[in-house]
């Protein structure tokens, strides 16, 4: 249980290492399964972080550069074991995974010129596109709901932003500029739609 109303509990270095090693070695299947394992170890099994605190921490990680799950490991490590927890969590999550990935890639590189592997890649390439597009479609759902809650005007303006960014990406604009443009337009839209909300009296 969490002491004195706190939403996190402390943990020793050895136990933290064992938690991250378990996650790192068992998390086959990409980011979703890794996130599920982290949640189970930290919130459900060991009760180191409350469910609400875990969700808040994950939301903050969306704003950080790089891999969100590594950022999550950094923040969780900091919350349960201080500065030492940051180092232990990063090494624990990435160390074994990176080594296994290098070994798997070396194994694949030895086979990549064989005819079987070439035939396999002909089918894998469109499958990657299918997995990626479906993932993007699934990401649209929660964002759409959130924007609809903010109002119809807000939703339509963000839909126009979506189409404009996609069109610029097709035309070859640099991703960094597109992200900066998205952030700037998002900030402007939030101010504009907030002013509209304040100008229109509530119906209730």
């Amino acid at each position: 249980m969490y002491k004195n109303g706190a939403e996190t509990q402390s943990i020793g270095a050895k136990e933290l290492v064992s938690v991250w090693l378990r996650i790192s070695l068992l998390s086959f299947g990409g980011g979703t399964s890794t996130l599920a394992l982290i949640r189970r170890e930290f919130s459900e099994k060991r009760e180191l972080v409350s469910e609400a605190e875990f969700s808040r921490t994950w939301a903050i990680c969306q704003l950080a550069p790089g891999i969100n799950l590594v950022a999550l490991a950094v923040l969780l490590g900091r919350r349960v074991a201080g500065k030492m927890g940051v180092a232990v969590s990063m090494l624990g999550l990435l160390g074994p995974s990176v080594l296994i990935t290098v070994l798997l890639t070396a194994g694949y590189a030895g086979l990549r010129d064989s005819p079987e592997m070439k035939h396999a890649m002909v089918a894998v390439l469109p499958a990657i596109a299918g997995v990626g597009m479906a993932t993007a479609v699934k990401m649209i759902g929660p964002v759409r709901e959130q924007l609809l809650r903010a109002g119809r005007a807000c939703y339509l303006l963000h839909a126009a932003l979506f189409i404009a960014i996609a069109a610029c990406a097709v035309l070859g604009s640099k991703t960094l500029w597109l992200l900066l443009a998205s952030a700037t337009v998002g900030a402007i839209l939030s101010v504009v739609t907030k002013r509209q909300d304040e100008a229109v009296p509530s119906e209730v």
């Binding site: 002909v122 390439l125 990657i128 596109a129 964002v143 189409i163 097709v170 998002g186 900030a187």
Partner: peptide, 29 residues
């Protein structure tokens, strides 16, 4: 509200760019 706007703008932009990259992937096969 500006911080919330920046976050929702980036979310929308990331999804749009990701869809285009995957579309280019499909077109290259």
């Amino acid at each position: 509200p500006v911080v919330q706007g920046v976050v929702s703008g980036i979310e929308v932009g990331v999804i749009a760019i990701f869809l285009v990259v995957m579309g280019q992937f499909l077109a290259s096969s």
